[in-house]
């Protein structure tokens, strides 16, 4: 009989981090595989086909980002990056290379579990996309290209809709400035963060009650933007 519990590959060279991750994750119904080096991680990813990988960037043999790049050549398995480096450029590199999330050490188990759950759900949704996205009072009907806020239809320009569409497709996940710019305006404009800011400001003024304190379209300072998913939205204020 095969095990139906999701397999998670934990890649970290620190035994005490691996230990608490294993205990914490196993306690919540996951099967945990461990790897202490980049090479072991890549071998385990091929051999065990895990549903998700938790990848520490500070590995002894190779940089974690290299592992991420190598993985992405053949796999779309969700990768959750762990790092003690809380720096925007590092985050941007990880997201641009295809990381699904970036968790700064030290972190709490509850936070990690929530992010793992979200990443796994996105994986399921990616395989069977639903045409309707809902978060709070925001509703995006991808099939009919209709956006509603609190049941009132909102008119968006084609570029604004395209922006929102990309964010919906990656809901809950950080989309970097570069990714948004090259998808909406083409690779020529991928460094024109200024243009993007202006467009986000306009988009927010259509879909947010208070654009200064957005509830749906969140800024990840210096990295990109993220559309909140229903389980990430706090109750109405």
């Amino acid at each position: 009989m095969t095990d139906a519990r999701p397999k998670i590959l934990v890649v970290d060279d620190e035994p005490q981090i691996r230990r608490f991750l294993r205990l914490g994750l196993e306690g919540h119904g996951y099967v945990v595989l461990e790897a202490a080096t980049a090479d072991a991680a890549l071998r385990a990813a091929v051999a065990a086909q895990p549903e998700l990988i938790v990848l520490d960037l500070g590995l002894p043999d190779r940089d974690g980002l290299e592992v991420l790049g190598a993985l992405r050549e053949w796999s779309r398995v969700p990768v959750l990056v762990l790092s003690v480096r809380n720096r925007e450029d590092e985050k941007v590199r990880a997201f641009d290379l295809g990381a699904d999330d970036y968790v700064v050490k030290p972190f709490g188990m509850a936070e990690l579990l929530a992010r793992i759950k979200a990443a796994l759900r996105r994986r399921v949704e990616r395989e069977a996309p639903t045409p309707l996205f809902r978060v709070g009072g925001l509703e995006v009907d991808l099939a009919r290209r209709i956006v509603r806020v609190n049941d009132a239809e909102v008119r968006l320009s084609p570029k604004q809709y395209r922006l929102l569409q990309i964010l919906v497709a990656n809901a809950g996940k950080v989309v970097t400035h570069r990714q948004l710019l090259s998808e909406v305006w083409g690779v020529v404009h991928r460094d024109d963060v200024q243009y993007l800011r202006v467009f986000i400001r306009k988009l927010r003024s259509r879909i947010e009650a208070d654009p200064a304190r957005p509830r749906y379209l969140l800024t990840e300072l210096g990295v990109g933007y993220r559309l909140r998913t229903p389980d990430q939205v706090p109750g109405p204020p």
């Binding site: 963060v193 200024q194 654009p211 304190r213 969140l218 800024t219 990840e220 300072l221």
Partner: peptide, 27 residues
């Protein structure tokens, strides 16, 4: 770089969300 102050304020408020949970925040 040219940025919006509201983005910075929002990010700071989100980071301190838990500490400010017991307060009424007016922005």
């Amino acid at each position: 770089e040219l940025v919006e102050l509201s983005d910075i304020i929002d990010a700071a408020l989100r980071r301190k969300e838990r500490g400010l949970a017991a307060h009424v925040v007016h922005v």
